[in-house]
Nucleic acid binder design. Structure first.
Lengths: 160, 160
DNA sequence: TCCATATGGTCAAGATACTTGACGATATTC
DNA sequence: GAATATCGTCAAGTATCTTGACCATATGGA
């Protein structure tokens, strides 16, 4: 592999968005690999994104749709898949004949447990890499960022 | 919309991975919306991810494949699309009969220019939200994280 | 020089994730 | 009750990415 001279590393991006994207991708790849290695072969990033919005005690499907920033149909399809995998189950909502409740199965709760363990492992790795202080500053900044936008931002698509 | 009592906010995730993912998604949504509003309707996140690996003076397709963490076929398909949109063009590599060079068209360079402007706008918004210091700490942590892993990490798939 | 092997790129087919549009069933509001 | 809104589903299409197979050109060594 010859290093061409006229292709010297002419500035790859170094702005917040790029850095966030790269960091997020790296984290997800590491996490997904560990989850699959732990036997949760059904795991995918899209599914993880949805599960992140489902608290341990379950939720109503409609509430889930509000939280996730996608269309209700996308949420539904992910739920279909997770239900077929036996990670979740859907029950009729006793308080609303139209609604459904989503909750974890035993298998789903096991996955959450493994996920928590893996998260801690990855976090330890990060602290080793950049130090406790930088890591704390990172979390602080990310939390502030989140808090600062909660209101504005965009509409979920497909909600016609 | 009635607030059910037994559904009170039972801990949504608050770990690095989740925060990074949310922050990354928010940034990308904001950026993509602004790009499309600026007339670059061909813009998508996947395409942006690829363009981020193409320096302004172009690159060889094979070098691009090394940088992007996906299969050569995925890269090719994205390039096909971007070429069809007139954002990029591919030329035969004069130094390697097999190779191709990828470079921006006028349209592509215009988009890069608008992109730079939008990035700065978003960055200013972030600084307004969380303050200069937190923002600097965020960038510092993200850069350290990136530097600290450059070596390890995973193989690109599909490279059989 | 010629052959084996590696590399750069393409074609094709399938899986996943997501989007839009249309539609029933139940709630809510007046 | 009737009009309207909400909840969920079905169906079809698009974008992205994956794997596998395949040529064409380079490269390295006998």
């Amino acid at each position: 592999m010859v290093k061409e001279l006229d292709e010297k590393n002419d500035a790859l991006p170094d702005h917040v968005g790029w850095r966030l994207w790269q960091a997020s991708r790296a984290w997800q790849a590491e996490f997904a690999a560990a989850m699959r290695a732990a036997g949760h072969v059904w795991f995918s990033e899209a599914r993880a994104g949805l599960l992140g919005h489902i608290p341990r005690n379950g939720t109503r499907q409609s509430a889930l749709i509000e939280r996730a920033a996608t269309s209700k149909q996308a949420v539904q399809q992910l739920l279909d898949g997770l239900e077929a995998e036996g990670v979740l189950e859907r029950l009729p909502d006793p308080r609303d004949g139209r609604g459904k409740l989503v909750r974890y199965t035993r298998k789903g709760l096991d996955a959450l447990r493994d996920g928590d363990r893996i998260k801690l492992q990855i976090e330890r790795g990060y602290i080793d890499r950049i130090g406790e202080q930088r890591f704390a500053a990172l979390m602080d900044a990310l939390r502030s960022l989140d808090a600062g936008q909660a209101d504005a931002s965009g509409e979920a698509p497909g909600s016609k």
